[in-house]
Simulated assay, not measured.
Amino acid sequence: MAAPAEQTDLADRDPGRVHDGEHAHRDGREPRELPRHAGPVRGRRGAPAPRRLAPRRVAPRPAPLVSPPARLDTSGIEVLSFDCYGTIIDWDGGIAAAFAAVPAFRDQDLPALVAEREEIEKHFLAEPYRPYRDILRASLQETAARHGLSLSRDDLDAFAASMPTWPPFPDSTSALLQLQRHGSLAILSNVEREVLDASLAPLERAGVRFSAKITADRVHSYKPARAHFDAALAELELSASSILHVAGSRYHDIDPAAQLGWRAVFVDRRGDGGGAGTPTVRSLAELARSLGS
C-alpha cells in the first residue's frame, strides 16, 4: 500500500488563507490597506460605522484520492458467499505469527518477508494444482532462499500446519450470526477442506451455518481462476445475480467475481481503500449494520 502523502500546512498551500489577521488575495495582489482615522468613523446617526474587511476566502476542499465506493444493492440476494482467510479469519495476524516462529527469520524484516512470500505464492497458484499446504511450504522456502536463509523441514511443516490455529477476527462470529438472517452463507476458499473445517469450527459451535464450502482440493484450482465460482453456482443451484460475494482480497475474489458478473462487497480490513464500482466496508460488523441486522 502506498505511503500517505506528507501533510502540508494549508496556509502554505493556499495564498487565500488568513495569516495573523491579514487578508491576502489569490490573484497575487497586495492586500488592500484599510484607511486610518484618528477616531471612530460615525454613521448617519452618530453611531460608529462597521469596519469593512475584505471577505475571508475559504480554501476549496481537496478532491478525494479515489472515487467513492458504489452503493450496496442486495435486491434478490439469497446467498452471501465469503472468502475465509483475510475476511473471516485473521490472515495477516496468523501468518505474521507463523513467520515470527521461524528461527531463521529472527532479526529479519518480517513484514517485507511476508509481502514477498505473498507475491511468490501467486505464481504457484497459477500452476497445476497441488495442495495448499505444499504451496505454503514451497513459497516460504523460496522466500528464505532469496535472502540466503536455510529452513529445516520442521520449519516448513510447522509453518504450513499453523493455519488451522489462526484466529477469526473479533467481529466475525457475531456479524455472521446476524448476516445469516439475510440468506444462506457459503464459503469459497483456497485451502483444503480439513483446514477450512478446523478454522471455522469455533464459529460453527457458536451457531454460524454454511450451506456450501467450496475448497481448492475439491475443484483442483485456486482463485482467482473461475472454478470456485462455477462450482458454487452448481452446488447452490442459483444464478450469479442471487449471490453476494464478500471478500477481503481484490486479487483473489473481488476482481474475478466482477468479471463473472457477481455482485461483491470488498471488506477493506487493511485499509487499502475501496475504489469506484465496489461497495466497500471496513469489517463484517459494518456490513451487518449496513444490511440492518
Rank of each mutant, 00 (worst) to 15 (best):
P4N: 12
A5P: 09
D9A: 15
A11Y: 09
D12R: 14
D12S: 14
R13Q: 15
D14E: 13
G16T: 08
E22D: 14
E22H: 10
A24M: 07
H25T: 11
E33A: 15
A38C: 11
P40M: 06
V41L: 09
V41M: 04
V41W: 01
V41N: 00
R42P: 05
R42E: 11
G43F: 05
R44Y: 08
G46K: 03
A47L: 10
R52K: 15
L53Q: 10
R57I: 14
A59C: 12
A59K: 13
P60H: 13
R61L: 13
R61T: 12
P62N: 05
S67W: 04
P68R: 08
P69R: 07
R71D: 09
L72Q: 05
G76P: 07
I77L: 13
I77W: 07
E78P: 01
V79I: 14
C84D: 00
G86N: 09
G86Y: 08
G93R: 05
G93Q: 04
G94W: 01
G94I: 03
F99E: 02
F99T: 04
A100I: 01
A100C: 04
V102K: 04
P103G: 06
F105S: 05
F105M: 05
A115Q: 14
E121G: 09
E121I: 03
E121Y: 11
L125C: 10
A126R: 09
E127V: 00
R130Q: 10
R130M: 07
Y132G: 00
D134Y: 00
D134L: 08
D134K: 02
L136Q: 04
L140G: 04
Q141Y: 09
E142F: 08
T143M: 12
R146Y: 06
S150L: 12
S150N: 13
S150P: 01
S152L: 05
S152C: 08
D154N: 11
F159C: 03
F159P: 00
P164Q: 06
T165G: 15
T165E: 15
T165Q: 15
W166S: 04
P167Y: 07
P168N: 06
F169W: 10
P170Q: 05
D171Y: 09
S172M: 05
S174H: 14
A175R: 06
A175C: 08
L176A: 09
L179R: 05
Q180T: 02
R181H: 15
H182R: 15
L188M: 12
S189V: 00
V195Q: 01
L196T: 07
D197P: 00
A198C: 02
A198W: 00
R205N: 08
G207M: 11
G207C: 13
S211R: 11
A212V: 11
T215Q: 01
A216N: 02
H220M: 08
S221G: 14
A227K: 01
A227P: 02
A232C: 08
A232Y: 04
A234Y: 00
E235H: 03
L236K: 03
S242W: 00
I243E: 02
V246C: 15
Y251I: 06
D255W: 03
P256L: 03
A257D: 04
A257S: 15
A258D: 11
Q259L: 12
Q259M: 11
A264T: 13
F266R: 03
V267T: 09
V267F: 07
V267Q: 07
D268G: 08
R269K: 12
R270T: 13
D272A: 15
T278P: 00
S283N: 09
A285I: 00
A285L: 04
L287N: 03
L287V: 04
R289C: 10
G292Y: 07
